[in-house]
Write a protein that binds this DNA or RNA. Structure first.
Lengths: 336, 336
DNA sequence: TTGAAAGCGCTAACAG
DNA sequence: CTGTTAGCGCTTTCAA
């Protein structure tokens, strides 16, 4: 593999000149041409490791997501990638598996590899610790979930409002006993969506006791949704509708309903976030649609801003959700 | 950020000794202890960039996959990741989007970043070019798809056999006019599965003309499967069953069938590869099950072998598929 | 505009 | 077992 001195020698210039040609320094056109030709001839491409060492910063950003098998996050990842490509940053995808320990390891790697910055959908609100990075001046952007104590830019979804909207919609359509399956107690997304649900129920005059008794925390995965739904169905006063706080748990909940011989829209089902392969689900599901791609794109834009040296005060961008009514919440009487 | 000399100074030893402590060299217990203490005190962790530059090799491997939104590949990625973790390798995931150009860019990065090795599910059989890497001695393992000219280790699935099995199953169950939707003409997986289909049809005495007329190439995505299925249904002699060569296209095909008011098992549907969220599909789908996780794990194992210096001759590991009969191919008469 | 030279943090060869 | 030393390939002063 040819290096910068090889190129310099064949072009009859100094290594510094070659470096300038590749980094937009001032070089006369004639020399620059000679350098480019020599580089092409030798198949030279700059060694990024050496460059990173010298610059004390790599042109790679880390993207930490909690579940690579959740289409929400893969779509978010695409948003990041597309946006990053514009400034020639490459994206390293790390799957933390909702595991704070694994997440910590990846954060360490980001530091040790001198990545330019990190975008993270935190595994835990309380326990994810970004201070090691921020303390060393590495730009960090939180996306989708905001770790409690972190002083970082963030891109979020208006979870509470979305949850409130969703619940109000179910009540409007005539469901009387609306339950909620939300995520782990630690996560900001879980709690905000739950807060929205509670607010709407309270507003509708449902006693807080009832609401609390018909709330379940699960793990944002299919199995968790399944188990929670079964519990709810086994209650003395089972619900006639459910607001499920993420897409995968909705898949599980639907499964549990099917096994119990219950079908929407007689029983209302509303999912926060698009269910993967929604086209396969009958009847079509009412969902709160999340701007997953834009979430990623905005986060990357924010990060690139910081990398370019911006020292604006920290900001949080909140993206809107959109309620998409479909068959699964048509109403308990099956009318219209 | 403390560096190796800082640690050496506080521990009262030389940088070389510190390096040895962190890399398993021979150091007396007492000194090693002093070094570890100093390192902890200063919050030292070795700079991987400097190490990579010096060693001419990073402890990162690249994983190039064509579609991050396909659960088959995410599961494969998990296999790679879990296996890599055993030797402290981190995995960089790159989404090539079935785009040879994008793939080439990532391969360049792998080279420039001096990654330890690369595992690649090639975007194209003909046009994916791995020679730049192999020429520079970088270990490469092909997984799932084998670029034609590449001299690399590989982990594959017995696609042809799987396709043959699947088709034979449909014929056995009494379907008479079995069509096939396969992937892009360039991909090895497409062609091998198609070859299996053809062999089984030929064996059953179906004229090759008919078989050819009822074959469609699509792009391994949902929309492609949808369009292909619509074409097949519009034929003068429409099929009464279809063998679809990947999971996402099956989702599309099912959609097209539904729109046409056709439901399995009256019309037989068999998918090569598990359909995501299969639990949502009614009736349950017959599938050729692929060992996606093991594919990734084996590829990583092979790569680690090379990294450890193995110079065995190149090998190809072929993993078996398993036919999982379910409702969607019960037979055209709906009997049993 | 250009080149010489220093040095990013680490590991490995060598000498002790 | 330990320390000294050279250098991986690049960018960036500094002086010309």
């Amino acid at each position: 593999m040819a290096n910068i001195s090889d190129v310099a020698r064949t072009a009859g210039v100094s290594p510094a000149t070659v470096s300038r040609v590749f980094n937009g320094g001032r070089v006369t056109a004639e020399r620059a041409e000679r350098v480019r030709k020599a580089a092409a001839e030798l198949g030279f491409s700059p060694n990024r490791v050496a460059r990173s060492l010298r610059m004390q910063r790599a042109s790679v950003i880390g993207l930490l997501i909690p579940d690579i098998e959740n289409p929400f996050f893969t779509s978010l990842a695409r948003g990041v990638e597309d946006s990053a490509q514009r400034t020639n940053l490459s994206v390293v995808l790390c799957n933390t598996d909702e595991d704070v320990e694994k997440e910590r390891r990846y954060l360490d790697i980001a530091l040790a590899e001198q990545m330019a910055g990190v975008i993270v959908a935190a595994a835990s609100r309380k326990r994810t610790d970004l201070s090691a990075l921020t303390a060393r001046g590495m730009p960090v952007v939180a996306v989708d979930r905001r770790p409690r104590a972190a002083a970082v830019d963030a891109v979020m979804v208006d979870n509470q409002h979305g949850g409130e909207d969703a619940t109000a919609h179910l009540l409007e359509r005539g469901y009387r006993r609306v339950a909620c399956i939300t995520g782990p107690a630690g996560a900001s997304t879980s709690e905000d969506r739950l807060a929205g649900y509670r607010a709407a129920m309270h507003e509708a005059g449902v006693p807080d006791d009832w609401t609390r008794a018909h709330t379940r925390h699960a793990d944002f995965r299919v199995d968790g949704g399944y188990a929670a739904m079964r519990e709810l169905l086994a209650l003395r006063t089972p619900p006639d509708a459910v607001f499920v706080a993420n897409n995968l748990m909705t898949v599980g909940a639907l499964q549990a309903l099917r096994e119990a011989g219950i079908e929407p829209p007689e029983f209302g089902v509303l999912s926060f976030g698009d269910v993967p392969w929604a086209s396969l689900v009958r009847p079509p599901l009412t969902t709160v649609q999340l701007p997953s791609y834009d979430l990623g794109a905005s986060a990357a834009a924010l990060l690139q801003d910081r990398l370019a040296g911006s020292d604006k005060p920290l900001q949080t961008v909140v993206l809107r959700t959109v309620l998409q009514p479909r068959e699964s919440t048509r109403g308990p009487d099956g009318a219209g």
